[in-house]
Design a protein around this nucleic acid. Structure first.
Length: 354
DNA sequence: AATACGGGGCG
DNA sequence: CGCCCAGTATT
């Protein structure tokens, strides 16, 4: 995909930079244990290094081996993942840990094909584990690599299409230093993360500043090209923290929507905003309670919770009742039980503020 | 091929 | 406010 000469100066520049100027340090850098590499890679999918850092440390401290993780309960692991987002990663993490521990004697596959067969491992993660743990000649292609390659080589093809991604993978592979895939991949990502930044890149410190198409033409801001714009859905969530004798009614969310498998209180979703006065009434929640049996303990301000594809406008009210009820799908739980479970940030924030 | 999936940081 | 982040699975 790239000319021989290009590969020569590219690898020379990358190695030189990596040796002399790359001082990036991370807990998992240089790690060889496939389990720890896998764990770090899953945590870091679409997640900034600083955000995942402490989660990684807590996970390896709590679960030092894939066996220990495989034996943990779902709730315990989700609680440790709480706040990190993209919770299907957590579900897949558990699934794969159990597959590796129970069906593969604790050994991760050491081939690209084998790695890709595991839930939660795609092209990027397979290349990362393959190269870092097993020295396989696989080139990682993540957001950093998109940036570095599109800018240096002046690739105008959008990187967020199937074709564009394929192109990036071919380019990355053709530039891979097969003598040392692990070091090469790490250097590519480090360069993207510390020099070839999304905004205001430090081109003066870049080994490719004289060769980079984007840099030499003053167009670094134009790369990488992306074609899609995301549509944001607006939703209105009203939560009822129903309390009876120090217990709250809680349920676990199903798959197929945001926050799958996390827990929450009684939820009423509406198409439009509702007045506080309306949600204060038991009838809004489909319940019949007399005034003196429906004690409003607290009401949150409107909470705007912004996700990539959704803007959730929420409000939480806390009501104490004197006569209990049963609600299908919900369970009465003590506050101690609730503290063991993972909730959306929107809810944990509210509870911590009270 | 397009879309859903979190949460936080930054200009 | 919009973009981006060590992407993947599903439709």
């Amino acid at each position: 995909m790239v000319e021989k000469q290009v590969k020569v100066w590219f690898l020379r520049g990358l190695k030189q930079w990596n040796k002399s100027s790359n001082n990036r340090k991370m807990p998992w850098k240089g790690e060889k244990d496939p389990y720890k590499i896998w764990l770090s890679e899953i945590i870091l999918q679409q997640t900034r290094v600083e955000q995942g850092w402490d989660y990684y440390l807590r996970f390896i401290q709590t679960y030092p081996t894939v066996q220990s993780l495989s034996q943990a309960s779902d709730n315990e692991v989700f609680k440790l993942w709480e706040g990190l987002g993209y919770y299907s990663r957590c579900r897949n993490l558990l699934h794969t840990a159990r597959v590796v521990a129970n069906q593969r004697k604790g050994k991760f596959p050491d081939t690209q094909e084998g790695l890709l067969s595991l839930k939660g491992i795609g092209n990027y993660t397979a290349a990362a584990i393959g190269s870092f743990a097993f020295g396989l000649p696989l080139a990682v292609v993540d957001g950093n690599v998109h940036r570095v390659l599109s800018r240096v080589l002046g690739i105008r093809e959008p990187v967020d299409t199937a074709k564009g991604k394929k192109r990036m993978e071919e380019l990355a592979e053709s530039l891979l230093d097969k003598q040392n895939p692990a070091q090469h991949n790490q250097a590519m990502m480090d360069l993207g993360a510390t020099v070839c930044l999304p905004r205001n890149p430090n081109c003066t410190q870049c080994p490719f500043s004289k060769k980079c198409i984007a840099c030499t033409t003053g167009t670094v801001g134009d790369f990488p090209v992306k074609s899609k714009k995301i549509n944001v859905r607006h939703r209105f969530f009203y939560y009822l923290m129903l309390e009876y004798r120090n217990r709250l009614l809680v349920r676990q969310r199903e798959n197929g929507d945001v926050w799958s498998q996390l827990h929450e209180f009684i939820l009423k979703e509406t198409d439009e905003p509702k007045e506080l006065e309306e949600i204060n009434r038991a009838s809004f929640w489909g319940m019949r309670y007399a005034k003196n049996d429906w004690q409003i303990m607290d009401q949150s301000e409107p909470i705007v919770h912004v996700l990539s594809h959704q803007r959730i406008n929420a409000r939480i009210i806390h009501v104490r009742i004197k006569h209990p009820l049963q609600l299908k799908g919900y369970t009465w739980m003590s506050k101690e039980q609730i503290d063991q479970l993972a909730f959306p940030r929107l809810i944990t924030r509210y509870r911590q503020s009270r």
